[in-house]
């Protein structure tokens, strides 16, 4: 009996190994393990054996049944795996078809530059101040030690506004009015930068715009020296442009600072690039804001933001910054 059973088991395993769908598997399950299967019948017949044989035979029947059961499970697993493979294959997608459907927008280049500048100065202990773009002659000129007759006024190429007396109201020609507004409402110590839009009667061309952007710095504290100015510029330049870029100051003239300087940064080829102007806040400017120049000293600096973007991205036409062409905007 056991021998017959073993042959049945071999046959069952062979057929289960080749079964190709779940229905056929169910039939084989009934045929080899069901109520009328040889294994079940053999188990039922065990009772008729004498006790000596019953134990050995019982063990053998159970082993055979377990063998067939394992073969059924294995076939079931094999079929499930095959079905899964088929299903996944049916769901196959070419993901490259779906690229670039969603788009994040772009921050404007000027914003990107301005944010980077603000972050560097914030790291150096500065806060960010802002002011209006339309200013009075007091804030744009007079409080900055540029009286009405001063030749420097002409050099600002100011755009005036039809308000007040002639040349009394203007689009600010630099961010320096924010110095005055800050000092009027805040007592020293003052450590601010003031980024913002500025305006001049420059005809738009590849390197000029009538509306452009500057950032201004102002420090007023006890015992501030020109060495502090040079050191601050140097620290900023290294933080913003990289550690191997150097800075230098050259004598210059601005009515609102004294001593005044231009500051340059070094280029890889050993030459220098003029970046902006700076100097020690003129005592008259401090006095105009009610600050005693014998108690407080300060420095100020300023430079163009747009040019940094132009340099960084090698723009050959600055007008792109205001053209709002998406083919330009989306590059950054």
């Amino acid at each position: 009996m056991i021998e017959t059973l073993r042959r049945t088991a071999v046959e069952a395993k062979a057929r289960l190994a080749e079964v190709e769908d779940l229905d056929a598997l169910a039939e084989l399950d009934v045929e080899f393990l069901g109520k009328k299967s040889a294994v079940t019948l053999a188990k039922r017949r065990l009772g008729s054996l004498d006790p000596g044989q019953r134990r050995t035979a019982g063990q053998a029947v159970n082993e055979i049944r377990a063998e067939i059961e394992t073969a059924v499970e294995s076939a079931r697993g094999r079929l499930a795996q095959a079905a899964r493979v088929l299903q996944l294959e049916a769901e196959r997608l070419d993901l490259t078809e779906f690229r670039k459907k969603a788009r994040r927008g772009s921050l404007h280049l000027v914003t990107q530059s301005r944010d980077r500048l603000e972050d560097v100065f914030v790291g150096m202990g500065f806060t960010v101040a802002e002011g209006p773009e339309v200013e009075s002659a007091w804030y744009n000129f007079e409080a900055l030690n540029i009286p009405e007759w001063h030749p420097a006024r002409g050099s600002f190429d100011t755009i005036f506004v039809d308000l007040g007396e002639p040349e009394e109201v203007m689009l600010r020609s630099h961010t320096s009015p924010v110095q005055i507004r800050t000092m009027e409402k805040q007592k020293p110590p003052i450590y601010i930068v003031a980024p913002g839009r500025t305006f001049r009667t420059d005809t738009a061309d590849a390197t000029h715009l009538p509306a452009f952007n500057q950032i201004e710095g102002l420090v007023v504290d006890r015992g501030i020296t020109m060495g502090d100015l040079a050191g601050t510029i140097d620290e900023f330049v290294r933080a913003f442009f990289g550690g191997d870029v150097e800075s230098r100051l050259r004598p210059s003239y601005f009515p609102f600072t004294e001593p005044s300087a231009e500051f340059d940064i070094s280029r890889a080829d050993g030459t220098w690039l003029e970046l902006g102007g700076c100097g020690m806040v003129h005592p008259n400017v401090l006095r105009n804001c009610g600050i005693d120049p014998d108690e407080w000293q300060g420095f100020a600096f300023g430079f163009g933001i747009d040019r940094l973007a132009v340099m960084r991205h090698e723009l050959d036409d600055i007008r792109e910054l205001v053209n709002n062409d998406v083919r330009f905007l989306r590059q950054f």
Partner: peptide
Amino acid sequence: VARLHGYENIARTVPRGELPGGLT
């Protein structure tokens, strides 16, 4: 005096204000 001494000969220092920096 600064001009003739040479701006480059002024030792560089960095002031540290007592107030923290930051955005509003």
